[in-house]
Every structure is written in structure tokens, then in C-alpha cells.
Design a protein around this nucleic acid. Structure first.
Lengths: 144, 144
DNA sequence: AATTTTTCCTATTGACATACTAGGAAAAAG
DNA sequence: CTTTTTCCTAGTATGTCAATAGGAAAAATT
């Protein structure tokens, strides 16, 4: 039941882009430095976010990334699912064919309840919420 | 974010033991047949439950397994954690050393909220609840 | 006493996922 | 034309998952 580092880093980058937005494009290099993460690995991850049109990019000098939309557009769920695929605890929740007896399967009911609980959090919290928490706590030396 | 087959099968076995309890020991063989699962694999899993004292066993002919306690003793969380370890979405939730800045880490707050949501379900639903759901729906040909 | 049935224990395997690293092509700016 | 940056693909080490396999120990039956 773990969220992968890719998922974590994706959120971390999106939050970094939101917090450090100054109208210019932000390089992977600077994000990697701030967050103390592998540049090459972050590249791969942000490419997935780029293909999902969650960030826009330009190449070359003065290039980098920016959020496509404002932070309140993105829920945590949108970002995590782009990277991790479904976050359902079992495939029978999302795939019709997996458990071909879902409607009369006791445990599928339980997995579904867990799934709803997770979604209740991640589809409710937005990037803007996280930014706000960050801003509210800057004086207290919060980190991402 | 998947629950492993071990976790699923563990719950399935515990529920099978609860539902089919008739005062005698129940063999792995019969559980495997009813649930259509690998006998040898279930053996390994139930051994973990046995070591946790969630089931008691006797060897030899007429041997098998029984629940140690009544079904309302066991929460789904107890059973799953015995098999899967912690169900926290990130290790920083349970290990002190993982993120050494938890108290000022924004994302750790988020992981913690997800963790609480999951626990809210699994620590609330008991094996007895599942048995009840099963009994209530026997006429409708429910499966485990 | 021998046989059968069952749990107990450990080792092995194949497939897949995870978390990266590496190298180079393409494009934009100066 | 040089530098900076994104874009794209391949490789790799490590670990986890989902089993399978084989046999020892114990309890009941014959």
C-alpha cells in the first residue's frame, strides 16, 4: 500500500512550481537542487506531467517548466493518478473483468470502502490548498 | 497502492473460518477448495496468522485451524497488518527516522491524512461485520 | 506398529516493478 | 556556433510478489 517515489516527487515538483512561480520558466536543475533529488529522474517524471498537459515547457536556454493551470485546478488525486495509475487497493474496483462477481462479492465491498476513503482525501485536497498551507507556515520554516 | 494477494487471501480465510465454524478444526485443503486457491500458498499465509495467535491449529488427521477469538475480536486492520505490515502510504508515517522533518513537512501531513482515512475504514470494520453481511445475503447467493 | 492425514518450515523460482543512471538528439537563446 | 535546456530511449541493480516444491513432525486411524 505504498505510494511510489515517482508519485511523491511529482507532487513535490508541482508544489515547487506553484510556490516558486515568478512568471518565468523554471528549470529541472533548480527544482532538483531545491528538493535535493536526482535531476535525471525528475526529468522522466515531469515528462509524464507534461504529456498530461499539467505543465508546459520550452527547451533551450531560458527554458524550463510552468504550471499550465492555476494551483486550484489540480487535485492531489489528479497528479498522483497521472503518475501511479489508479490508486484503488485492488484491481477489482476499477477493472470490470477482474472479479467477475463484484456485485455479489463481500470483500469487493470492503475494498470499495477503502477506495472511497482514499479518494475522499486526494480528490478533495488541491495544489492550492498545499500552497496555502505552505504560505501560512513560511515563518515557521516549513519545507515541502 | 495495492493490497497484496496475501492480504486478500488472509481475510478470505479468516472469513471462511468464521462462516464455516462448526466446532471442529477446518483444514487448509477444504478452504483452498471452497475459495479455489492454492493450498500451499494458503498454508504460508495462515502460518502468519497462527504465529500472531489469530488462529489455533492442531496437526495430523482431524487437524486443521480454528479462530482463536470470536469474529468481533478481529478488525480488518489487524488481519491485514499481520500480513502486509503497515498500510501507511509512505514509510515516513510510521518510521521516525524516515523523514527527519515530519513535523514541518507539508507532504507528510497529506500522507498522514490518507493514512487516517484508510485506518478509519479498516480499524472500524470487524470480521463479525463481514460475517453479518454474509449471513444477511445468503439467500442472494453471495460469495466471499 | 504402520499408514494416513494434516500442519509446520524453508528454499527456490519466474515475472514484474521500482528507482534510478546514462547517453545523446533536438530546440531555443545569446 | 556554443551553451543551456528539454526530450526520448535504453539499461541496470535491487527488491517484491505470487507462487511451487519437498520434506519433517505430529496426531489419528487402522
Amino acid at each position: 500500500m505504498r505510494i511510489s517515489t515517482k508519485g511523491q516527487y511529482a507532487l513535490q515538483m508541482m508544489l515547487d512550481l506553484a510556490v516558486n512561480d515568478n512568471g518565468e520558466y523554471i528549470t529541472i536543475k533548480s527544482i532538483a537542487k531545491r528538493q535535493n533529488l536526482s535531476e535525471k529522474y525528475l526529468e522522466q517524471i515531469i515528462n509524464m506531467l507534461s504529456r498530461a498537459k499539467y505543465v508546459k515547457s520550452t527547451r533551450g536556454a531560458k527554458g524550463g517548466y510552468r504550471l499550465t493551470n492555476s494551483p486550484d485546478f489540480y487535485t492531489v488525486g489528479m497528479i498522483l493518478r497521472t503518475i501511479e495509475g489508479s490508486l484503488a487497493p485492488l484491481s477489482c474496483i476499477e477493472d470490470e473483468n477482474e472479479c467477475n462477481q463484484v456485485e455479489r462479492c463481500l470483500l469487493c465491498e470492503l475494498w470499495s470502502e477503502i477506495n472511497d476513503a482514499i479518494n475522499g482525501v486526494i480528490d478533495h485536497v488541491t495544489l492550492a490548498d498545499l500552497v496555502r498551507r505552505y504560505q501560512d507556515s513560511v515563518g515557521y520554516d516549513y519545507i515541502i
